[in-house]
Simulated scan of single mutants.
Amino acid sequence: MGRPRKSKIEKDDPLAAEPSPGPDLDPNWGSRVRERLVAWYEHAKRPLPWRTDQTPYRILVSEMMLVQTTVTAVVPYFERFLNQFPTIQALAVADEAEVLKAWEGLGYYRRARQLHAAARAVVTEHGGTFPTTPDTIRALPGVGRYIAGAILSFAFDQPAPIVEANTQRVLSRWLAWREDLKSSRSQARLWEAAERLVPSQGAGVFNQAFMELGALLCTPRSPSCLVCPVAAECGARILGIQDLVPTTTPKSPPLEVAEACGLVVRDGRVLIVQRGPGRLWEHFWEFPTIHLNGVDPAGRSFADPVDLAEGIRRFTGARVRVGPVVQTVRYSVTKHRVKLDAYAATGLSEELNPGPGLVRAVWEVPEKLAAYTFGAASRRLVSWMAKHEADFHDFQSDR
């Protein structure tokens, strides 16, 4: 039997066409892509600090920082982090609190802990010398196939492929790949193409050029095809579907969460607490916070509903009088969108006894709060309190 005839809708829809075997199967196509891409990169590359001295340690730090973060945001953090921990040995012997404080503001703090653990593994398991094989590098905490490929190619010029946000978008357009990028079939196909493209020599330059093209020209929306050095080799451009691929499954809407915290002041000092291990915000400091409704990602719920004053007492042992809402902070964490109402509150008792989920509770003078590691929402509240100190004094005097 012959193949079924396509409907008019399928004929009119460019994404409904069956994908071709792929230009990466042609060695001549690959040679042209590499030559044009590297030539473009030589004059178009950005002067990023991790490109000036491509040691495996610096590459590891930069790639860990760049997860879900923009290059512009990472640059100042990278430079400060390397000033504080200039070698992998310096990072390995550092206290976790120091590492988290140096990372503060970048988010995805699990990456900071993984970076710290990877540094310790290099020192304890490899004598401080960075491993050079794919298996040993991928065995380091937090290092997956992409970061391993970046280290292998950038630092050691080994022909290791890379597929990340930028390069998978570029590859999907070059291949005119129409399937959902999140599918296992798509990922396998893109890694296969990346392996064919990476050269045996000059792999580091090629991979960086590959990523740079996605960052600067082959952008998620309105790609700059007219100035792209590889436009003539791009399957999506040839078919006129560069604005339609890649395709991805839309993200689910965030889960709404409501929380409340107390900005508790007593005799000029502020009550802060440190989260315990094993949950979100592990070992971070915050103002005593309770969960109100929605999914509870941080373990701040009690078996029975409580108001803020009772929640603070159970968490810290302190009796407090809660006043009005003085600030509302909205922030996103994992799959959640959180609305945090901050209440002015007065401490009525001095003694503290940390409750469930906490390891410490302290009264601290406001000028020393900057030395503690807070999450993004709490840092915003620290800044707000510094600007409204008089308001809290007035609330305190009304006890």
Rank of each mutant, 00 (worst) to 15 (best):
Q84K: 13
L140H: 01
V123K: 10
A97R: 11
A121S: 14
A117H: 07
F156G: 07
A97E: 15
A118G: 10
F85L: 00
A94G: 04
P76M: 02
P161Q: 06
T136F: 00
P131L: 08
F154C: 07
N83I: 05
E164L: 01
R120Q: 15
G105P: 13
Y108I: 12
V123G: 09
A148M: 11
A121K: 10
E96A: 10
V122G: 04
Y109H: 14
A121D: 07
A90V: 03
L91E: 09
P86A: 00
H116W: 14
E96K: 09
E98T: 14
I137T: 04
V123H: 05
A148C: 15
E125L: 13
T133C: 05
L82V: 02
I137R: 07
I137K: 07
V122Y: 02
V122E: 07
P141Y: 06
V93I: 15
A139I: 02
A160F: 10
V93G: 13
A92W: 12
D157F: 10
T129Y: 12
E104N: 15
V163T: 08
P134V: 07
V143Q: 08
F81C: 02
L152F: 03
Q114R: 15
A150W: 01
L152A: 11
A112D: 05
R80M: 01
A121M: 08
T132W: 02
E104W: 10
E104F: 11
D95I: 11
L140N: 04
V122L: 07
I151V: 14
F78Y: 14
Y109M: 10
D95P: 11
H116I: 05
L82R: 02
Q84P: 06
P159N: 10
Q84D: 06
W103N: 09
T129K: 14
R145Q: 15
Q89K: 14
A148K: 10
D135P: 01
R110F: 13
R80C: 03
T132H: 02
I147E: 07
V123N: 08
W103E: 11
R111M: 09
I147L: 14
Q158P: 02
A160K: 08
A150Q: 09
L91Q: 10
P76I: 01
A112K: 05
Q158G: 06
A155W: 07
